[in-house]
Design a protein around this nucleic acid. Structure first.
Lengths: 347, 347
DNA sequence: CTGAAAGCGCTTACAG
DNA sequence: CTGAAAGCGCTTACAG
């Protein structure tokens, strides 16, 4: 790699002048002739500036970092991380930004590694689904000097937090309202991980919808869990045990699963217990994991994770360039996808 | 971020001394007392060195670049790129290296961007399946100063090229020998993209196997194509047209598809033409795209792309650290996976 | 309109 | 055993 000094020598100017010309800094104050000479010399030598030298001199690196915590062996096949990363990458590719991946085993490891994120490599950070229970976001926020960052798949409230996510409250409300509109009055909630921001928000949407419809909220039919199929299986079993014999009549006529995965587990378990879906019980999910959801006829609330990734990339770019201010929120509107797993309450 | 100067001030030594202690350079020549004082000061201040400053001073960046060209909209779902990236990432994660993704639309764009790869960000590069027809590898090789790089999914011959790949010649030979062992004597070859190194190699394996068995090589039943299902469909059609009427008897009794995707296309087309598989024609692929190959009962030659990614990561790390020398080759042994799409030649 | 100088935060011979 | 100095390749006030 030729250095700026060689260009300077070649063009018979000082390195400072080369820098100004190539960065279009002193634009007006440099003679056309010199500019031409510099550009031509740079071209001839095949000069390309050292990004780390520019970075050290205080310029932008044109690189952003993506922080993900996952303990699974596969990143690319994760139903959230995969599409989300695809979305981010599609934008950075197009904007010709470098992307540095910070792959962490978990958020504790990420917390330990914050110094590496801020060591000069990157202009900003995208955190994919940090957990609300985890201090990483607060630590990052109080970091000096401040490294711009956006939260992806997380839309907690918080001073100066930039968030890109599904509008989870609306999604929870929409799912619940759909069931209510079909005449259901006892609607179970199969929750996801308690440490995900989305879980609280979807739950809030659920309660809001019940309240608006004047329906009672019954904590007995709210089932904590995780965002995986096993949790759907487990909670159907729990519900089945709970509403047996005399209690049989109290059994919910619909289940709002906080994710499609949970719903798939629930469908499987319902089949095992010979509870007919949808005549005996309706099921709705959130996500629209398209292929599978379509195959199984799951009514669900769609979110486009890929597009969330894209919007996050755009927001982070804006943040790093100072074009948008921290605190910007971009929540994707949910969309109801009607299939066959939800039907009107059978009298 | 505190700088090395603050640590120096805190420990009442010079910055140079701090550097030596923290990098364990002058280890022996620095008093235990000073070492302790420096470490303690660094700890107290929460010092973390600037990676770009170290890079500029000639140290390793602990970051490697991954170059991929893809025009599809999704990287993570690509059947080769996805698992390969997963494999690479799993190693870098464990080795605590940063990974910078260079996402290119195509290899021409990659060629243009070589200066960015070598601008100080990375210690080395992994190129995922560069095309043999493309000058990027030669350009990279003649670059000064030289940036270490490995070829992933490409094992062309070439002075000083470090390659990690499936042993494609063996794979081609194994597939063909399997068919020969079943009594087949007219074996069609459905090739992949001509600009992939693997295509030539698999083809070589095919011809080698025929030669070893004393079978004639017939260019009439070698079908150029691409590594996609459509190509399998298209080539069955071509073959069908070719061996109709009087020529009917010359039709191959087996097809060696250079990828599973091609094989899936071929199976589909055979069904359409009412050619019964496997009794009328046997089909073998390469890859073992497990779920689908299993569903369709495809006999195939397995390669573990994930493990190729992992080996590539390890090789690149070794190369960047100077522990292995350019020219190192690591070829994965193929493995025959028997299913129902190949049977003994029916008399 | 252009250049000399200082500085970004490190490391590494070289002196002492 | 430790420090002062030069250098990595840039940019940016500041002079002139």
């Amino acid at each position: 790699m030729a250095s700026i000094r060689e260009v300077a020598a070649e063009a018979k100017v000082s390195p400072g002048t080369v820098s100004k010309v190539l960065n279009e800094r002193g634009n007006a104050s440099i003679s056309r002739a010199t500019q031409a000479r510099v550009r031509e010399a740079a071209e001839r030598i095949g000069y390309h500036p050292s990004s780390i030298a520019r970075g050290l001199a205080g310029m932008r690196m044109n690189a952003i970092g993506v922080v993900m915590a996952y303990d699974e062996e596969s990143l690319t096949s994760d139903p959230y991380l995969g599409p989300c990363l695809d979305g981010l990458l599609s934008i950075y590719k197009q904007e010709r930004q470098k992307v540095t991946l910070f792959l962490e085993q978990n958020w504790d490891a990420a917390l330990q590694n914050i110094p590496f994120y801020g060591d000069g490599h990157c202009d900003g950070l995208a955190l994919i689904i940090p957990r609300t229970t985890h201090p990483i976001v607060d630590t990052l926020r109080s970091q000096r000097p401040h490294l711009p960052f956006v939260l992806v798949g997380d839309s907690r409230e918080g001073e100066g937090l930039t968030c890109i996510d599904l509008d989870n409250v609306s999604a929870g409300r929409m799912a619940t309202e759909h069931l209510i509109s079909l005449g259901h009055r006892r609607i179970a909630a199969f929750q996801g991980n308690a440490d995900f921001c989305s879980n609280d928000q979807r739950f809030k949407g659920y309660r809001d919808a019940l309240a608006s419809a004047g329906l009672p909220y019954d904590p007995e039919i709210v089932y904590p869990g995780v965002y995986f199929a096993e949790s759907g299986v487990e909670n159907v079993r729990r519900m089945q045990k709970q509403f047996t014999g005399d209690n049989r009549s109290g059994r919910p006529s619909a289940i709002f699963c906080f994710s499609d995965s949970i719903a798939f587990g629930a469908l499987e378990a319902l089949r095992k217990y010979d509870i007919h879906m949808p005549t005996e019980i309706s099921v709705i999910g959130i996500d629209d994991l398209t292929t599978t959801a379509q195959q199984r006829g799951l009514t669900t609330i769609r979110q486009s994770v890929r597009s969330i990734g894209q919007r996050a990339a755009i927001a982070l770019l804006g943040l790093a360039r100072g074009e948008i201010t921290p605190g910007f929120r971009d929540l994707q509107l949910p969309e109801l996808v009607l299939r066959s797993s939800t039907v009107a309450l059978q009298q």
